[in-house]
Structure formats: C-alpha cells, structure tokens
Design a protein around this nucleic acid. Sequence first.
DNA 1: TTGTATGCGTTATCAT
DNA 2: ATGATAACGCATACAA
Lengths: 335, 335
Amino acid sequence: MVTLADIAKRCNVSRASVSKAINGHSDIGKETAEFIRKTAREMGYYPNATARTLKSGRSQNVGVLFVDKTQSGLAHEYFSKILESAKSMAEKLGYDITFISRDIGTTGMDFYEHAKYRQCDGVIIASVDFEDPAVIKLVNSEIPTVTLDYVFNNRTSIVSDNVKGMEELVKYVYSKGHRKIAYIHGEETSVTQRRMASFYKTCADLGIGIKPEYVIRGDYHDPKAAAIATRKLLELNDRPTCIFYPDDFSYIGGMNILEQAGLSIPDDMSVVGYDGIHLSQMLRPKLTTYQQDATFMGEEAARQLIENIEHPTLWLPRQITVPGKLIEGSTVKQL
Amino acid sequence: MVTLADIAKRCNVSRASVSKAINGHSDIGKETAEFIRKTAREMGYYPNATARTLKSGRSQNVGVLFVDKTQSGLAHEYFSKILESAKSMAEKLGYDITFISRDIGTTGMDFYEHAKYRQCDGVIIASVDFEDPAVIKLVNSEIPTVTLDYVFNNRTSIVSDNVKGMEELVKYVYSKGHRKIAYIHGEETSVTQRRMASFYKTCADLGIGIKPEYVIRGDYHDPKAAAIATRKLLELNDRPTCIFYPDDFSYIGGMNILEQAGLSIPDDMSVVGYDGIHLSQMLRPKLTTYQQDATFMGEEAARQLIENIEHPTLWLPRQITVPGKLIEGSTVKQL
DNA sequence: TTGTATGCGTTATCAT
DNA sequence: ATGATAACGCATACAA
C-alpha cells in the first residue's frame, strides 16, 4: 500500500506537504503541488479512508437504516428504488453507504451506537418502526438524520404526498361516476393514517358517504390479505363499485378473487392501486394508480442529508413533501 | 466519546488491560477483566471501528458490488433477496456491509481501489458485468471475494444450478406431453449460456428437436421484450405448445399478449417462468416455474466470504452450486 | 497477570 | 511555502 510517507520520500518533501497537495490546500506552491500529485498518481496512491476518518472525525460515509418487520423492505419496489437512488446520489456527492442495524455480531449495540461505531456522518432512515425507542434515540442524537415517510420534530424528512395522492385518486374515481367506494387499507402506520384521513375528507368534501363495512384492514404488499378483504366486500349485499387497494402489489390478490368470481375488471368492478410500480403498468388492464416518486425521494434524502452534514451551521430542518402523479390506467369504469 | 483511556483512568489500569478485557483476551485476571467490562458498560463505552481498523488492518466490513446495467438490480426480487440475506448473515457474524462502486465523488477510483480505500475485508459480487476489467482486477486481487452466478478460476462462487433447473423444467413439460417447446431467453450472459445449453441438451436427450424459430432472444426482467417475442411465436404457422420465459417477471408481458390473442393459459398455450418470485404464485393460474434459492445463496455467500476472511490459510476456493426446486403451478397443460 | 511503548495513515497546528 | 510534530483511538509485542 502506498502511503503519504512513501510519496513524501520519493518527492523529497514532508508528509504534511503531500497531504496539502493531495487535498488541494492553498498553502503550498503551485508547481510542487502539481509534482506531488503527479508522482502520487504514478505510484498508484489512493487515500486510506480509515486513517482519514480517525484523524478528521468525518467518514464520508452515510448509514442507512432499513429494517424490515414485514420482510418486504427490499422486495418492495418503492423502497428498493429509494435505496438505489439514495445510493447513487450519495456516491455522486462522494459518500459511501453502509447499512446500520441492531445486534451486529454479539455486541448489543443499538442503532445510535452502531452509527457512531462506524463513524457515520449521517443516517437515512426508512421502512422502520418509527416508534421504536432505538430509532427515536438515533433521531434525537447529534447525528444528522433524514427520515422517509415519517416526520420528527425539528428533523428533516422526505414525505410522499399521501394526502394529495389519495385525494386525486378519490376525485378521479368520483369523476368517473363512482359513489360507492371501498378502501382496503394497510396496517396502522402514519402513512396509512394520512391516506385514510384524506380518503374520508375527500369523500366528505364531495358529499359521498362511506359505509363502515366498505373500509377494511388489509396489509401492505400482501396479496393474500387483499384477497381476503376483497372476498368480504363481495359478500356484501350492497357491493361497492370501486375498490381501493393498499398498493399495486397487494392488488394482485384482489384481482385473482375478482376474476375467480367471474367479475370483469373494470366492467363489473373498478379498482385502483397505489405506488405505480413497474408491474402495475404491465398488467392488463393497466392499473389505475398513484405513482410515488421514489427515485426523487431517495435522491433528495441523500442530498438533504449531505447538505446538513457539510453545512451544519446554516442548516434548517425541512419537511419536504414529494408529489406523485395519477396514472390513469384502465381499471376504473365510467359509470 | 468514551475511549479506552477514559476507562483505564477510571479503573486505575492501563489502556492495554482495558483493551484486553474488552476483547476477551486470556492474559488478564478474571475479576479485573470483569470489573473493567462492568465499568465500560456503565460509562456507555462502545468501540471505535475506525481506530480498530487502522491498527489491526481488519475492518469487519464487507463490500457489496451490485452494479446494475439494466437498472433492475435491486428491483429484481432475486437480487434483493440475495442482498438481504447476505446482509443478515454478515451482521450475524459481526460484519457490516458497505456498497462498493466506481466513481465515488470525483476521485477516479476503480472497484478495487474503492474496496481498499474502505478497507473492506472482502467483497461480495453480484449482478455485474463480469467481463468488466475493473471487476476482473478486483477478483484477481488479494481481497477475498465471492461471486454470485459466475465462476472465476480459483475463486469462491455461489451459483444457482441453472443446468438442473432448466433440465427439470424441460423434463416436466415433456412429461406433460409437450414436444413443441419454445424458449424466450434473456440477454447473453453465462447464466443464459448455461440455461440454453441445458435446454438443448435435455431436449436432445429426450429426443425432441427444437425448431430454430422457437428460440428467441428476450431480456431478463423485461415484460416488453417478452411480449414482442411472444407475438413472434404466435405468428408462426406451426406454433409451439409451451413457451419458456426468461423469468417470472418478464412472463407478465407474454401473459398479456396471450390473453389479448384470446388464448387461455394453459388450455391454449402452456407457459413456464424462472425464479419463483412471490408474484409468480400470486398470479392465476399460478405459474409453473423453477424457484432459485436466493435466500440460501445470499447467506452462503456471506458465510463463505467471512470464513475465507477469518481463516485465510486453510482456505480453499469452492464452487458452490445451489439447487432450486420446481414449483408446479397450473400453467402447463397435460396434452 | 499487568503495564509500557509504539505505530497504523492521516490531518492540523505551529514553527521555520 | 514548507516542515516538524502531535494527535485521533486502538491493539500488540514485549518488558516487568
């Protein structure tokens, strides 16, 4: 391994000068600096992040907290896209990404300790139980964090606009003449709360009432739960004309039930999903859904976090709400 | 931040003794060690990975190379499962995971340099262009590596048994009476080569000939390409009775075309996929496919890599072939 | 069994 | 503009 000392010896200068040349400091002669850099290149030098971090306290490394109660974290296209785009943006800005977890090896480190252990300059938090004390401890620590789809006081967050998304979907379905709308929602999270509130509010604003039996608990990313819920809806005497699913993927379960029941989509039953994943536009008929801008969210999370890391003093926490867009498929019939 | 020195001072011992106590060395008194550990716990001590790495040369950190020409790396359930299970296993064994990439920031580091820069103890390589000189450089370096679905000479690899998988699928389809079998295959990779070779060989062994026009290039994870290929097959005068798709996800594209053409699956056309992703068993009819054991592959990759890292001397490179299992759905008709 | 001393590669302070 | 030197926190060879 080529070190600063090796280069210093070869160039007949001090290690300090080499460091300055490599890092582009101003207090070094123009041509010496250039000579040193050239030699460094010739010798195949690249820095040692570890030593640099130890000395400077900055690791150029951001942690990603991506825990997965439901085992579907990475399998969920929404989250995998967020991760992927956050990764590219971080890399573009010169940062690496390390996964943060609890219980690494036998040490009983919590998230905060793990992040400190690895000297993470900041942490991106997504797809976790935000009520977990360990998550709260991390968020309230001195480490810069960005949360996705959950807002903490005085902390930066990137939130998909679930209120607008649900509102647009309801209005669209309403404009197609539907008044009897059912909603199979995901498990209780803040995202679910917002979508449900927006669902009820928009319906109320439009003057349509929603029967209690039209609102059923399903689960995100779980076609089986959606299938069961769909079956319940079909058993009702007064069936809805349109069903909202927790997300595009879980819709598959409902789709099967509807087809089994001999109901054609959208002629006998209209449906909408949520997410706008690749799959939804591959199905026939194409699913009407609300596409969340996961790519932008991931990029923005990385951008904001690194901005915070690099300019801690003039940093103000922001809540960034990211709009998506309605994708008009062919699963909502004009009544 | 609590350091070894702080603990040493509080315990009236040397830093060396604290280090020994923390790391459970034997050359320290039983009760002093316990006392030191207790104090450390009280003081909220956790180690500093950076300093430890700098001194010991070991980072307890493995790199993951997961590049994605087709933009579908993480979106592909097969790979996201591999990543997730490799991550859990690595964590269980006390290792963290950092993504390795090219072009971090403005530095022109290649994969090898990046891995060294972060002092990775080893690297897991998946979903990349294995012909890329930068990948080859990394694999041929002194850094332990494990590759997935690609074999390098004298290096450890975890390979899904594509030969057996394809063989089982062909035999199954054959047993159902099919003789006119079409194969839409993915882009040219070593995986594709093996599947195709196995496809041809098994057909030959069974004494069935495959018309050249039955074998069409599609793309992995690309329903559109599968749709186009399917259309071509339907245009043939002598249509196949069964179509093999590159994978389960791309099958969606074919499924749509078949349905549009008024063909019922499997009554008018039989189909099989590959991968055994969650989705495949949610579709109706359930897809007949070959399920790759991605979870095991990821775990094994981490296990083997760390074994290699921790016992470099008695390490022998292995090629581990991981069998999957045929999932008999309802998309192959008995002729 | 315990402690001393040194160095891992880098950056930063302070002289020169 | 350049260099000497001390730290960052830890682990280890060696001395006691």
